[in-house]
Design a protein around this nucleic acid. Structure first.
Length: 251
DNA sequence: AATTCGCACAACCGCAATGCC
DNA sequence: AGGCATTGCGGTTGTGCGAAT
């Protein structure tokens, strides 16, 4: 048995709020606060359900709400937070003063998803270029990459469609999701760096790692390369390399 | 000028979490 | 501890409006 929507109760109004209703709600809350949302509409003389009043207040009428377009900084923040938190809109909103979860959700679905998709297309072109120019040996490597335990990933908690991110660390491997697939990559420990340094094109690779501030600890760089924990990170470094190091292939 | 289409945003719905008795 | 009421949250829908045809 499905619970009937609260507003189906006799006489309760649905749909867009009128300025008069807004005025009544704001005046009441300013005067008495909103102790009990369920009781509020009756006390304020509104023909709305408490849920509708709460939503109207939290998403639109609250005095601390910042109206108007999102700045580029805010959009970037949403994208970053979404990468970290997933669709936890209220958690994202908590980090963006004056913005509501509903507003952020709308902006995400109308603007940011598209923006992300465009960026992703650019990245995919880079990847396509990388794989189209690979040598025979690299082909072998990329086949290995493609044959990693890369079954479709379980529904990603913190990734949006098509994006990538590191998820868990397990058995000394870091699991990465990449366009819906998961790959286990090794931890970047000392042996990782010794393999990098002994690779044929080590100078080139080390240059590229160092360019982004990542490298072996004794070279004065941080070891925590999984701060850069997306496949974009790897593809940004690797296009210039002659081959993908075995380590990155999880071999 | 009329109609269609797509976008943006407000509002709703249902489930989950939390609080209270 | 269990049941009910309330609140919070995320997904989805409805509506208004401007652009395109």
């Amino acid at each position: 048995m499905v619970r009937a929507p609260c507003c189906e109760k006799m006489g309760l109004k649905k749909g867009p709020w009128t300025p008069e209703e807004d005025h009544v709600l704001v005046t009441y809350i300013q005067q008495y606060g909103h102790g009990n949302w369920r009781a509020l509409p009756k006390l304020a003389g509104l023909l709305r359900c408490g849920k509708s009043c709460r939503l109207r207040w939290t998403n639109y009428l609250r005095p601390d709400i910042k109206r108007g377009n999102f700045s580029r900084e805010e959009e970037d923040a949403i994208i970053n937070l979404h990468e970290m938190l997933g669709n936890r809109w209220s958690a994202i909103a908590a980090r963006l003063p004056g913005r509501t979860d509903n507003e952020i959700k709308n902006v995400w679905h109308t603007h940011l998803k598209k923006r992300l998709k465009q960026n992703q297309t650019t990245t995919s072109e880079t990847r396509a270029h990388f794989f189209s120019t690979k040598t025979e040996q690299e082909t072998e490597h990329s086949e290995k990459y493609e044959s990693l335990d890369c079954g479709p990933a379980s529904p990603p908690q913190c990734t949006s469609s098509g994006t990538s991110s590191a998820t868990t660390s397990d058995n000394n491997k870091t699991c990465m999701e990449f366009d819906g697939y998961a790959a286990n990559l090794p931890e970047a420990d000392e042996s990782f760096w010794s393999e990098v340094l002994s690779a044929e094109n080590s100078d080139q690779m080390v240059d590229q790692f160092q360019a982004i501030g990542v490298g072996p600890a004794d070279d004065g760089f941080c070891l925590d390369m999984y701060d850069h924990n997306s496949m974009d990170f790897w593809f940004n470094i690797l296009p210039g390399a002659d081959e993908i190091p075995e380590l990155l292939l999880g071999v």
